[in-house]
Structures are given as C-alpha cells and as structure tokens.
Design a protein around this nucleic acid. Structure first.
Lengths: 225, 225
DNA sequence: TAAATAATTCAGTATATTCTGAAATACTAT
DNA sequence: ATAGTATTTCAGAATATACTGAATTATTTA
C-alpha cells in the first residue's frame, strides 16, 4: 500500500519533471522565448538562436515532447508555435523568478550595457510622462509581424533592418524612445546606437511589449482584414 | 559587436536555465513541494521523499545553487525552507502547466484512484454547499504544524497518524470531508479509507489548502502566542 | 524525372547528471 | 575527551544529454 503511494508520487513528479527538463537547457529557453514572439520556422529559429539546424530540430522535438510547442507543416517548411498562452506566461514567470533570485542576471545585464555605453534606459512611467508632454516619438524596432501582433499605442513601426534607410521619417527636433521585446533584446539598443550616431536624441525603453501588457498597460493590435 | 550580443544572450539564457535545471529532476520537485508545506530538516525531507540522506543533501545543494531554497543550521540539524513565496507560486505554476498540457498527469491520477477505489472527490463548490447546509465536518489530516500555518475555516485538525486513536471525536451521524495538501497528496485518501472501514460516511476534498487559497477562498491562520 | 531545399534522424563523441556507500565534518551530550 | 548523530563531501559506476556532420525523408520546382 505504501509502495503503491510511492509509485504514484514518483510517477507524478516524473511528469512535472518533463516540464523541468524541457526548460533545463539555455538553447531551448531561447527557442521558447523566440516562439513567445510569434510562430517561426525551424530555419528562422536556428538562425536567430545561432544554432545548427540539426540541433535546433532536436531541441524543438524535446519541447514538443513536453507539449510546450506545436508544429505544423506547410509545404517545405515546418512552423513551430507555443502550444498555448499559458506556456508564454510560464516562460515569463521563469524569467521573473531568475531576475528576482539570481543576482547574476542583473550583473550580466549591467555589465553588457556599460560596455555598450547603453546609458540609462527609460522606465514605463517615465515614458508615459513624456508621452503626456507630447514631446516624444515612440519607435517599435521589431520585425513588422511582431508589431502587428501587438504594439504600444501610438508607436511607429520601423524594424531595425530598415531603420538606416528610413531615417528621414523620424523627427530630429523630438526625443525618440525605441523599444523591442524586453530587457534582454538587443534590437532597441542597436537602434539607439545607430540613431545617436546620426545625431538623433534617442533612448531605449526598458520594457518589451509583453512586460508592458503583463503589467496592465494598453497594447494595440492591428486589425486583420 | 554581433558576437558580443550573442555572448550576452547566451549568458542570460544560461542563468534562466539554472532555474530549469533545478526543477528538471523528479526528486528535487518533490523536495520543493514538501518545502512548500513548510520548513523541514534534511532528515525529514529524505524520509518523506523516500531518498537517502546523501542524495537528499546533494539535491538540496542543487536547489540552493539556484537560490530556490535557503538553509539555516540549528545545532545538529539544518532546516531548509523555500527562499521566498515567489518560489512556492512558481512550483504551483509548474504543476498547473503539467496538469494542463500533459494528459498523463490526469491519467496516472485517475488510475491510482480507481485502484484505491478512491471514489469521486468532492469539489470546492460542493463542499461550500455542504457547509452551508451545516451537515458536514471538515477534517484536516495533515501534520498539525501545517494546520497551524493555514487551514480551511472551521476545519478540525486530526493528523492522519493520530486518526485511529481519535475516532471518538468524530460524529457518526454527519458526513466527513477530509483534505490534505492537494490532489497528489495521499493523506486524505488514507484517512477516508480508514474512516470508511470504521463505518463513517467520509469523502475526500480534491483541493489542498494552497489551491483553495490560490483561488481566493478564505484560509484561517493560527495566532502566534 | 531530377535537382534543390527544409527538416529530421542517425551515429558517435564529449560532457553532465544521478545515485550509492564510505569518509569527513560539525555539533551535542555524556 | 568520547561517543553519537545529522549533514556534507567524495569517488566511482551507470545513465542521460548535447552537439556535430553525414545520411535520410518529404516536398517543391525545373
């Protein structure tokens, strides 16, 4: 009887550990994070995460085995996506726990920003105050399909890749605050560096859209035609 | 520059993976779950989780390395506890994700209860209805210090170990609903089996105190004198 | 039908993890 | 001091995981 209880508990915790094993590897966490921004093909994931295609495929298989992601084949491509929104929230809870408990996360970020002369990022409330004063342009530098999925109210979409060719669209007499996916996403940082080099008065917003939204701030979604 | 970005991302996801690695092992998850019920010594944890002391100590070291638990030495004993309440919530989010995404969790539980003739457990709303009708005794069968930390309003504390000797305290003309730590805790199940064998009209509550509380239901805490 | 491409699988090597029993440590109580 | 106890550390064997490049599969296009 007691051993029946033990077997039951062992079986249950083994199931919980399937989730744990899935998120026990840095590459898989990066893949999950990317998929949290929207569906991606294996190729796109491999490129963004700096992995080989075989390795990427194997990691995705592991994530699929834990039912955290789902795959759909369209012709030659296989598109992966998070299995549901609960998985995205779970990823953010790992991130928040790591930020709260592991001092190294803050350390690493601070050192990286210092090396890049990343200056002080703008916080949520600071940005809102600037917006109320009407003296700021909010710039979303993520790929445009991520902008379409949800973006800050009034933000202008100029993906980092296009930024250099579209500088004429930006005001030189106003502050620019650029944002991307969050504090560990480097798109906004690169944008700010480029803009400053061109003489713009640019800053980086600390949050990404999902943090912004998770804290109850409004997010705009593009209408599907 | 690009490789600097890559190093930064790798370093950050490695940090997130420290959390993942900590929860990638069934025994460590069981230890975390136990610590979620309250502080415990290494010995107590080892016994409850069915592990050897060396193994337990090593798992606890791993949990400590991920800053999920903290240790405090009192004389001969080392008492471990969750590092903070966020860790407890995180554990429950793993559990909920596993329940939602892994069909096996429900399967295993169902088969176990069937084998034990576990009958249909009582749900939250069902219990509240019974309480309103005034025809039910609510029984907390966890160790008494867990009862003291928080229990259902009006519940009677009779730890499973004492139950056999304290049957005279229980009413034979009313329904008894026993509960413990949650759906994977076997204390209430054992209690119901014992009570039924003695002719009581006993049922098992599906929830544990923490689920109950997490869903906004009231929980009583014993005053510290 | 053949060539090209995305994705997966396979095999092999390097590395990490888990568990065990023995030894070492740190305290307490006699 | 000595014996006893809880805990930790250590060393080693068994197993699992991660990554690589080559081979295979599935699909599209020429």
């Amino acid at each position: 009887m007691a051993s029946q209880n033990r077997r039951f508990k062992t079986a249950i915790y083994e199931q919980f550990a399937r989730i744990g094993k899935a998120i026990s590897n840095p590459s898989r966490l990066e893949l999950l994070d990317l998929l949290g921004q929207g569906p991606r093909t294996v190729e796109a994931l491999a490129k963004e995460a700096g992995l080989g295609p075989a390795n990427t495929s194997q990691h995705l298989k592991a994530l699929r085995g834990a039912r955290l992601v789902e795959a759909e084949k369209n012709g030659l491509y296989v598109t992966y996506r998070l299995a549901d929104e609960q998985v995205g929230r779970f990823f953010r809870s790992i991130q928040m726990l790591a930020e709260a408990r592991l001092a190294e996360v803050g350390e690493i970020t601070r050192r990286f920003l210092e090396a890049r002369q990343g200056l002080q990022p703008v916080g949520r409330e600071q940005l809102l105050a600037k917006v109320r004063d009407g003296a700021v342009t909010v710039l979303d530098v993520r790929p445009s399909e991520e902008f379409r999925t949800g973006h800050l109210p009034g933000a202008l979409s100029v993906p980092l890749k296009e930024l250099e060719h579209r500088l004429s669209e930006l005001p030189r007499d106003r502050e620019i605050v650029a944002y991307c996916r969050g504090p560990y996403c480097v798109l906004a940082l690169e944008a700010v560096e480029l803009l400053r080099a061109q003489g713009f008065n640019a800053f980086r917003l600390e949050d990404g859209v999902q943090d912004w939204q998770a804290r109850g701030y409004p997010v705009m979604v593009e209408e599907r035609p």
